[in-house]
Amino acid sequence: MAKRLSVVDVDLCVGCMMCVFACSRRFGDGGVSKSAIKVASIGGIERGFKVIVCRACLDPPCIHVCPTGALKRREGGGVVIDLARCIECGNCVAACPYRAIMWDEETNRPVICTHCGYCTRYCPYGVIKLEEVVPSV
């Protein structure tokens, strides 16, 4: 079954960014340049946080604005990117209402969640989890 990364309860988030660092560490590096997940306060940490992650749309707006067909539908929702075809236009970033497509400033390419779930192991409070995608009726 296809899986997707899901924000279970954002009020449990303490803003530690462990998930953000985990995402870049998939490639064996430190820092956050390759991270497809973002955590930021919603106007001061006392108000809590938002956890921005691709929600695996079944009909993703980002696909429709990619001029080169670099984005392909992913099984279970969301997209898979073919970086060889990307021309760095940034249309996909602007099309996502969640701003869940990140930008790698070092390679000047989009960073898109693959729903691998690597980050979930490092969330100490159960904010995010990988869940089965229930086929829509």
């Binding site: 560490r25 064996g28 590096d29 430190g30 820092g31 956050v32 340049s33």
Partner: peptide, 25 residues
């Protein structure tokens, strides 16, 4: 800033990281 920090030995970095993380938790 949101850059990456290149690591010389990527495989052992992830191993050591996990060991430290598990110890913290």
């Amino acid at each position: 800033g949101k850059r990456g920090i290149p690591i010389a030995d990527k495989a052992s970095y992830r191993k050591v990281y996990d060991k430290i993380y598990d110890a913290i938790m």
